[in-house]
Design a binder for these strands. Structure first.
Lengths: 239, 239
DNA sequence: TTGACAAAGATTGTGAACAATTGTCACTTG
DNA sequence: CAAGTGACAATTGTTCACAATCTTTGTCAA
């Protein structure tokens, strides 16, 4: 349609990059996480086919998977749209995180002896680097990923999956209701939380995390809403 | 194939019952929850098509959804098999439940004022009735559903989904490693937990729940494994 | 008898054509 | 001029046929 002749806006055209539905899911997932895909953006099958250079079947499988994760919403005969959490859902997400993350951090702090925290240490370094370079999308993504990796550190597949879903949804919410500048996670709270875990200061770790979540939630005002902005193929095409 | 001429083993042939993939997912989900579908059972597309009287597309969509929930495993070019959790996964499931359910029950007990517990009260009644009538599959399913409804009582969609996944997986695990008779949940522990919640006895509620989970986990021995048994079409066909 | 190898059968994966639904735009009509 | 109506275009849903892969069966030789 219109002038969209090349799917070259993707890093690599199509043949030499992975083209299964898992790849598509990851790309869209990442785009949502980095707030490059605004809520309510329509994901038409045709465009995705061109963008990723795959058949409709793959795209439809990917969309079905994404909808089962709650990242997009499938409307019958109307198409797929990036999920657009409302106030109520936002509340639920933070309530769920308040329920899960404190005990999670407690657990990490208590049994950190036999748990590998190097991933988290490295992660903090990445965050600092991104913040220094002022790379917006990178900062946003890493801010979310910290919490995901926190869950991953438990080595528990299910806890990881739950946190991943909650963090993703949080990213959507922050993008929708977040007051501009305050990207997502304030400054170096992540670093302090990790330190508390490392020093096995259970209470402090839990307290810091709770404050952290409150800060994020506090930085929201339920008025703003931002529409779709950039070209879709470009967003999904870039790495 | 062979002699399977009628999909009449289903309650109703096909036309007058729901035939979208959601229905198929629910049927298989329920069958797994009630331990009528043994782990590792193969779910061939053709059989499911006949059983539910739908096209292959619906079946494939359903299988994809089920696999994304972790209920079945899709093997490339080999088909779909009911998930077969191993010892490690079993450990993770209980660890995750130990992490989530105690704070969940605490929350319910603390703020039970404005929370509707009638669903849970009714549920206990159902459990008692099923136990009295000695309806095995019903007892198993209701035992799991209690925990799901506990999560549902929070009114939080995400907490509900998480618990649902964990409970389902637990059912698979109990079916695999459970020592025979000890169906799943001992006696009236559910009832006691609910009472503690109703009386806002937070500590007791949490303690009872922890004991309860330990009882379930304690009733497992990591030796047994039971193979598929009944006819597949019959299992899925019955309500 | 047992092992490997090959062919046949069955099952899943893929792509294309067809059908159904929805949204849009021009046109008519009060 | 506004509102309603009808046809057209675009998009999604479905079915079908075919290709790729795996499993089984049968055969032959050691």
């Amino acid at each position: 349609m219109s002038s969209n002749p090349q799917q070259n806006s993707i890093g690599k055209p199509g043949p030499n990059q992975r083209s299964d539905e898992k790849f598509i899911v990851e790309r869209i997932y990442k785009a949502v996480m980095e707030q490059r895909l605004a809520p309510n953006t329509k994901l038409s099958e045709a465009l995705l086919c061109e963008t990723f250079g795959v058949g409709r079947m793959r795209v439809r499988r990917a969309l079905l998977l994404l909808s089962s994760q709650g990242l997009i919403e499938l409307q019958s005969n109307r198409g797929a749209y990036v999920a657009c959490p409302d106030k109520s859902e936002a509340h639920d997400v933070f309530a769920a995180r308040m329920l899960i993350e404190p005990p999670l951090v407690r657990q990490l702090a208590q049994s950190s002896v036999n748990i590998d925290l190097t991933v988290l240490i490295d992660h903090i370094a990445l965050e600092d680097a991104a913040r220094e370079k002022n790379e917006r999308t990178e900062i946003i993504r890493l801010s979310g990923e910290f919490h995901t990796k926190l869950a991953q550190a438990t080595g528990n597949k299910f806890i990881f999956r739950m946190m991943r879903e909650l963090v993703t949804r949080t990213s959507l919410i922050v993008g929708l209701f977040g007051s501009s500048q305050n990207a997502s996670c304030p400054d170096d709270e992540h670093s302090k939380i990790l330190q508390a875990i490392q020093t096995k200061n259970t209470e402090l770790a839990e307290q810091l995390l709770i404050s952290h979540l409150n800060h994020i939630q506090g930085g929201l005002d339920m008025e703003t809403h931002k529409g779709p902005q950039d070209d879709l193929a470009t967003i999904l095409g870039s790495d």
